[in-house]
Amino acid sequence: MRLVWQARSNPLAWWWGFLTLVSGANIALWFALYGQFHGLPTGSVDGTDIELMLLLCAAYVFGCAFRSFLPRADVQRICLFDTWLSSVLVGRSVATVAEVCFAAQWAIILDQLGKMAGADTTLNAALVIVPLILIAECFSWYAVLTTNYLGNAIENSIWAVAFLLVGIALCRLLPEFQGPVRWAILIAIAGVAGYLAFLVTIDVPMYLSRWRAGLADGSKLLGLFEGLRDVSTRWVVTHDIAHWKGEIAWMSLYFSAAVWSSLALCAAYSLEDHLPRYRAEAAAVTAPSMPRLAHSPSGALSPSL
């Protein structure tokens, strides 16, 4: 891989450096979590459960790091480095595994909190998140193989539906918890709202615009088998910022904030033993009450416990 294009005058070099730095920090954070929670002793979150969350988190953290080190835009077949690892087939396969694992993390944490709070809305959301993302991945592969941006628009619309359900599930949990747990849920809701706003106002409209432009230009779509060969053998190295402008915003957010949320989910899941003390119901039961006054045989008032 040649790095001669990485000059201070090239904004792509700064962007790639940002992605690389953030990804390195994310990997370090994952290893810190692994060192903290690997082989966790017995408790309501047993060793097997936390190991699964660590594994799912690792798939997302390392998958996003791989895509940061070797950025590429799938439908356009463009990349920064001339290596077979930049092929769309490799990159999209890594992305698929990572994104399904990320969805599974959300399903697990919502299931954990939903059961603790007895919230059926949250439990139902946990059941449908992974199937929705699997469907979204099918549309992503359709877009990549055929070069039809409509598939990307549908894919990201499904992500929007999935995280709308996540937001509803989190809102259902708000009255069930208090203190720092409630604040954590509020922060998560704000993050989901920001993500939905980005998808609805920027991401999906961008892909729809590209799809309409392709229709206007009469661009020829690839067949599935032709596309499979194309994603395996063709990648175009470009260091022209104009070719990457549409990708920089979503990649920067995706490989930073989204990865941080994956790490946060892993850490939050390990705290199950501590969460019951922040249940609003438990707080109401343990709240001190004023002594009740009762009449004594002599007629004087005395406290009655």
Results as ranks from 00 to 15, higher is better:
Leu215Thr: 09
His239Thr: 09
Trp211Thr: 00
Gly214Pro: 01
Leu208Trp: 09
Met206Pro: 00
Arg212Tyr: 13
Asp217Trp: 02
Arg229Tyr: 13
Thr238Val: 10
Met206Ala: 12
Leu228Val: 06
Lys220Arg: 15
Trp211Ser: 00
Thr238Glu: 11
Leu222Phe: 09
Glu226Asn: 14
Val231Cys: 07
Ile241Met: 13
Trp211Lys: 00
Glu226Met: 11
Val231Ala: 10
His243Gln: 12
Phe225Lys: 14
Arg234Leu: 14
Leu215Phe: 05
Glu226Cys: 05
Ala242Asn: 12
Arg212Ala: 12
Gly227Lys: 03
Val237Asn: 02
Arg234Phe: 09
Pro205Cys: 15
Val231Ser: 04
Gly218Pro: 03
Ala216Pro: 00
Leu208Glu: 08
Ser232Ala: 15
Gly218Ala: 07
Ala242Gln: 05
Ser232Val: 04
Arg210Leu: 09
Leu221Cys: 03
Thr233Leu: 14
Ser232Ile: 13
Tyr207Lys: 07
Val237Phe: 04
Arg234Asn: 15
Leu208Ile: 15
Tyr207Phe: 12
Ala213Met: 09
Ala216Met: 11
Lys220Ala: 10
Lys220Met: 09
Val237Arg: 04
Asp240Leu: 07
Gly223Ala: 04
Asp240Glu: 11
Ser209Tyr: 06
Gly223Arg: 05
Trp235Thr: 02
Ser219His: 06
Ser209Cys: 11
Arg210Ala: 08
Pro205His: 07
Trp211Asn: 00
Arg212Thr: 13
Leu215Asp: 03
Tyr207Asp: 08
Asp230Ser: 12
Val236Cys: 10
Gly246Met: 07
His243Asn: 13
Pro205Ile: 05
Lys245Met: 14
Ala213His: 05
Arg234Ala: 11
Gly223Cys: 10
Trp211Asp: 00
Gly227Leu: 04
Leu215Met: 13
Thr233Ile: 13
His243Asp: 15
Val236Pro: 06
Glu226Tyr: 03
Gly218Arg: 00
Ile241Arg: 12
Leu221Ser: 01
Ser232His: 09
Lys220Glu: 15
Gly223Gln: 04
His243Trp: 07
Tyr207Gln: 12
Leu224Met: 12
Trp211Pro: 00
Leu228Phe: 11
Gly214Asn: 07
Asp240Met: 12
Ala216Ile: 06
Tyr207Thr: 10
Val236Leu: 08
Asp240Ala: 09
Thr238Arg: 08
Leu208His: 06
